[in-house]
């Protein structure tokens, strides 16, 4: 099937029905391999066993930011090309992004308490990620507030693009401001500074999280298309009853 065919909602539904079981199986397999590697990974020489929190905290943080990036691209699709699947993609991604951001914040707090001596500090990195979480809640609330779906799509697309300004702030906050949070140690110009014995399980877990996100996002997009069909059919039914 050519990729362009997936822009058609009906063909997209057929595609998801065929590929979702395979994606779900791949997700379970990669996460199982990742968790077994995490279990056998050595302790960090400074942090001890608490470094194991990194294997879920870092992939969750990457997805929290990646999901907003995807929503920003979808927002352009809504505003510039007015493609219906663009809004479907953004709307399906938002709850997942909020969930991964919450996971990032909570696991970070549980890592921070034994390492920093506190669950929370109002520094640049932690505060900007909290702002990202609040923005996810904001777009979810906006979708629910505006009744007309096309107006809601445009309003949330604008808010999403404005919110994208926060992404470089999150990324570079550890370089711009004094913080307890460690600087970038994987995605940096000079290459990763983590020992391969810890980097390999981290990358496998990140791949597992990415597959999990793709699986859940496609499934949520399928649900959103079905929800819009139900809405259209209910409106047609009401229209027919009114004649």
């Amino acid at each position: 099937m050519p990729l362009i065919d997936l822009a058609n909602p009906t063909r997209f539904l057929a595609f998801t029905s065929r590929f979702l079981p395979w994606l779900a199986a791949a997700t379970v397999l990669v996460l199982a391999v990742g968790i077994s590697l995490v279990a056998s990974a050595p302790d960090d020489y400074q942090q001890g066993a608490t470094v194991k929190i990194m294997f879920i905290h870092v992939p969750a943080a990457w997805l929290a930011m990646g999901c907003w990036t995807l929503m920003s691209i979808a927002a352009l699709g809504t505003l510039v090309w007015r493609h219906p699947l663009a809004d479907v993609a953004a709307r399906a991604a938002a709850p997942l992004g909020a969930a991964f951001t919450a996971m990032c914040l909570i696991t970070g707090m549980l890592w921070g308490r034994p390492m920093w001596g506190t669950y929370w500090v109002w520094d640049g990195r932690l505060t900007s990620v909290l702002v990202l979480f609040l923005m996810y809640l904001g777009v979810l609330a906006l979708w629910r507030t505006v009744d007309d779906p096309s107006r809601a799509a445009r309003a949330t697309a604008v808010l999403t693009l404005v919110g994208a300004v926060n992404l470089p702030i999150i990324k570079f906050s550890v370089d711009w401001w004094s913080t307890l949070h460690q600087p970038a140690s994987v995605l940096r110009l000079g290459g990763p500074t983590i020992h391969p014995s810890l980097l390999t399980p981290l990358l496998i877990m990140a791949l597992g999280f990415l597959l999990l996100f793709i699986t859940l996002h496609l499934a949520a997009m399928r649900n959103e298309i079905m929800r819009r069909r139900v809405r259209t059919m209910l409106m047609l039914q009401a229209e027919a009853a009114g004649r």
Binding site: A39, S40, D43, G48, A49, T50, K52, I53, I56, H57, A60, A99, F100, A102, M103, I106, T107, L110, W111, R113, P114
Partner: peptide
């Protein structure tokens, strides 16, 4: 695998992640 003195924080983090 031993999780050391901070086992509750490590298991708590994995538990929350599994729940989400």
């Amino acid at each position: 695998m031993t999780l050391g003195p901070y086992a509750a924080f490590i298991l708590g983090a994995y538990g929350i992640a599994a729940l989400i």
